[in-house]
Amino acid sequence: MIPFDYLKPATLEDLLEGLRSANGEGALLAGGTDLHVKMRLGLKSPRLLFDISELAAARNIVEAEGSLRIGACVTMSELMASPLVARLAPSLAEAARSMSCRQIRNRATLGGNIVTASPAADSVPALLAADARALIVGPGGLRELALAELLLGPGRTALGPGEVLLEVLLPLPEAGHRSLYFKVGRRRAQAISVISLAGGLSLAADGRIGSARIALGAVAPTVMRARQAERFLEGELPSAVNLAAAAALAGEECSPITDVRASGAGRRLLVEAWTHRLLQQLCATSGDDAGGNRP
């Protein structure tokens, strides 16, 4: 590991000022669970680290202005423990629970999980399925961006120089909305996703599907929404045939690669099978809707 300097700015203003004077040489350290590994392997060698793990402006979970606002430096353990998240974004809490082990969850942050921009990022399907937006602060002030537009490809985001992801904004779910998160790994804990998926669905008074949102992880260059499957379902009855057809569409519209965790073809089968399971559980009239992530 190349030697580096370490700074811990007390305020957001100090951080932005520091980033400005670092001139692109600095890196942000939140949980460090990805950054540290990359530095140890020599894949990243920042000269200057800004520790933002305790930056107050990025540490809150609040309900405000029709959104659930989650600071980028909130840890996975904090997401799991938050009553607000449990009530307003249960599938996000489930995604956090699915990540790695307790030690990592105590450090890893929501913002870090997003900006690392892994196609297999555990939290991102739950966020995308909730139509989350990113609040970004930088030299030009604050700006808001749909999360889907922030994520450009493996390891690539739309963050500009000196920009920092500050908060994630989740629109509040409509009444009767249900959401679920599933993760398939090679083992039951501490697994990188083979695939992951999150879904949200609301049924209209006539029993038809109002809105359907399906997000798929680890089957495309970024976490993706299964738009074709969603469109197919909207306004339809949640019949067995319709759910199976939508699941098949999800399997078709993803573009998985083959890697050490699974084959591309296998991932398509998994997407279809688990999307089907997801939709069945979302549409189930009885039983609880607490998500399961036990592949």
């Binding site: 699974a262 073809a265 296998g266 998994l270 099978a273």
Partner: peptide, 10 residues
């Protein structure tokens, strides 16, 4: 081996 979910489905 190893047998994983994808192999079962396949």
């Amino acid at each position: 081996i190893p047998v994983a979910q994808e192999h079962i489905l396949a």
